[in-house]
Amino acid sequence: MQHLETSCISLKNHSQASKNVPDIISTLIGPEWFYRETSLIDFITVVVVIASVFMSGSYRTYTTKQKRYTFFQTGFLLIALAYLLKAGLSLLMYMYTEQTASWLTPEILFSFIFIHHLLLLTGFYLLYAIYNKQTPRDIIWILSLLSIITWMSVQRVAALHTTLFVLLALLTSTFIAQRRKNAITRLLAAGFVTLSSSQLIFIFKHHTALYIIAEALQLIGYLLLLIALIKIRIHGKKKITNRHHP
């Protein structure tokens, strides 16, 4: 606890915007005693998201839907980078030393947060764009809007989670409305419902208990996504084996 107080004091002395720095650290990566768990959850998220990128990459050569795959891979890659940044920051704060205090100025911290928010918003928007055709005008307009939301969200983090909740809710509705329903599509829909709920709860994350519930939901959401990916892999092998032994 003492090192956080020291870091907050040192950060306060560096900037005019310092008044919000301790609040921003705690609203971004939760209470100090949860830093290690936050970074672990974010690292698991990165692994799942990167797995989606690699898996889609391995199917890319067989498909004719190149543009959709580009959006899918870029979207998930940006999300992975965003969580990698957050996981790194949580780990940095967990292993905080005097040396860290010397270079982690409020400006650097704000840049970290700004980039994290921008990557997350752009990543989820690219996923949304797969299912809702966007013209170049739409893309320019929405990306500029997302930049404004990012600026706002550095000060008011609820702006980020509200926007992410809306994007995820729209994505979830697409998965729920899937024409063909099977165990895998249901798992994906459940995963996205959980992720949307986590963003809704993250809006009120200044309450420690709600922050932890939201992080737990985020972990469950991405684990459901991981199970769906594993099931896709198994499905191919199963179908081949069943053909030989009908």
Partner: peptide, 11 residues
């Protein structure tokens, strides 16, 4: 696998 993946993600 690719067909299942595209079907699941609605690609």
């Amino acid at each position: 696998e690719m067909k299942t993946f595209e079907e699941a993600f609605g690609l």
